[in-house]
């Protein structure tokens, strides 16, 4: 039972990371980009829980996961506020509009 839970979590971690990365590659909306980052981070957080489960230090793993959640939320907040500012100054949330800086 434990084994299957571990492997299930493992699949979930890989799945979340893959979905997050794929989303970052294809989405064009700034808000969705931030959501994709969140999915990626959730994959990592789940990874910590998994790691704690494997080496038997679940307590430590949980506190690490909590820290990651906090940091991650801060990043999301800043990302969203930048998105709001961009919407405010450029009137769009489309990634492809953000190509004034290139070459």
């Amino acid at each position: 039972m434990t084994l299957s839970l571990v492997s299930l979590t493992f699949i979930a971690v890989i799945g979340l990371l893959a979905i997050g990365l794929y989303a970052l590659l294809v989405v064009h909306n700034l808000i969705k980009v931030v959501v994709a980052l969140q999915i990626l981070a959730k994959g990592a957080i789940l990874g910590f829980i998994l790691a704690g489960r494997i080496n038997g230090q679940i307590g430590l793993a949980e506190s690490l996961a909590l820290t990651v959640i906090i940091v991650d939320t801060i990043v999301a907040v800043i990302g969203l506020s930048l998105a709001v500012q961009i919407r405010h100054h450029m009137g769009t949330l489309d990634v492809s509009a953000l190509t004034r800086l290139r070459r």
Partner: peptide, 10 residues
């Protein structure tokens, strides 16, 4: 600078 900041963040 907003554009640069957002890209950097992501």
């Amino acid at each position: 600078s907003l554009e640069a900041g957002f890209k950097y963040l992501v």
